[in-house]
Amino acid sequence: MKRLHVEQFLPISLEKAWDFFSSPKNLNEITPPEMTFKILYDIPEKMYEGLMISYKVSPMLNIPLDWVTEITHVKENEFFVDEQRLGPYNIWHHEHHFKAVEGGVLMTDILHYDIGKWVFGWIAGKLFVDAKVQGIFTYRKAVLEKLFPKV
C-alpha cells in the first residue's frame, strides 16, 4: 500500500476552507482537466456521512472509468474522509484535515492507496500511477494558490 502525505497553507479562514472543500461541486475545479472528471448524478451542496458520489474519470489514456466514492466520516471544520467503493484502486482512503493556524488554515491530506498486489499493478504503479496521483495533488495545490492567493 502507498501513502501520500501533503500539506498546504491557505490564507483563508477555517470556515471559508471548510465551506469550499465540503462542497462536492468544487471537486471538478481542483481536478486536472485531462482527467475529464464528470459527476454523474445530482449532489447536495454540502457533504455528509454516507454520501455516495458517482463520476466518470479518465486518469490514463483518455479511457473513461466509473468511480464511486463514499464520504465515510465528517467532523465539521476539522476533517472528512472519502473512500472508493468502485473504481480502479483496490484501496483508496483519503483523509482531509483542516487546522486553523496563524494567518489561515493548514490543510493536510493523508492518502492510502493500493492498485493491486499482482505484478502488473506493481509495474503500473512504478511507470505511471504513482506519478499521476502525485500530479493530482500538484495540480490542486496550484489551483488553490490561484483561488486563495496570499495577500
Rank of each mutant, 00 (worst) to 15 (best):
G87Q: 00
Y89V: 08
V101G: 09
D66R: 10
M60V: 13
E70Y: 05
D66F: 11
G103D: 07
G104H: 03
D66T: 12
N62A: 14
V68C: 02
G87K: 06
E95V: 15
E76G: 00
E102L: 13
P64W: 04
H97M: 11
H94C: 08
I91M: 13
E95C: 12
L86V: 15
L86I: 13
K99E: 06
T69P: 01
G87C: 07
E78F: 06
A100N: 14
P88I: 06
Y89S: 08
G104A: 07
I91K: 14
M60L: 15
H96Y: 05
G87E: 05
L86K: 15
H94F: 03
I91V: 15
V101I: 14
V101Q: 06
E95M: 15
G87Y: 00
F79E: 05
H96T: 01
D82E: 04
W92M: 08
Y89M: 03
V74G: 08
F98S: 00
N90H: 14
L61T: 03
H97G: 03
I91F: 11
N62H: 15
F80A: 08
L65D: 07
I63E: 03
A100V: 10
I71S: 04
V68Q: 05
K99G: 05
G104R: 02
N77Y: 11
E78T: 09
V81S: 08
N90I: 12
H97E: 10
V68D: 09
V101P: 02
T72W: 01
K99T: 11
V81W: 05
H97V: 12
I91P: 00
M60P: 06
H97R: 15
H97S: 10
I71Y: 00
R85L: 08
L61E: 09
V68N: 08
F98Q: 04
V101C: 13
D66H: 11
I71M: 04
F79A: 10
Q84K: 04
I91S: 10
N90K: 15
Q84R: 06
D82I: 01
I71P: 00
N62S: 15
I63W: 04
R85W: 07
I91Q: 12
V81A: 04
E95A: 11
F98H: 03
H96I: 01
T69M: 02
I91Y: 08
V74P: 00
G87I: 03
E76R: 06
G87F: 01
E83N: 11
N62D: 12
N77F: 12
E102I: 12
P64N: 07
P59F: 03
H73M: 12
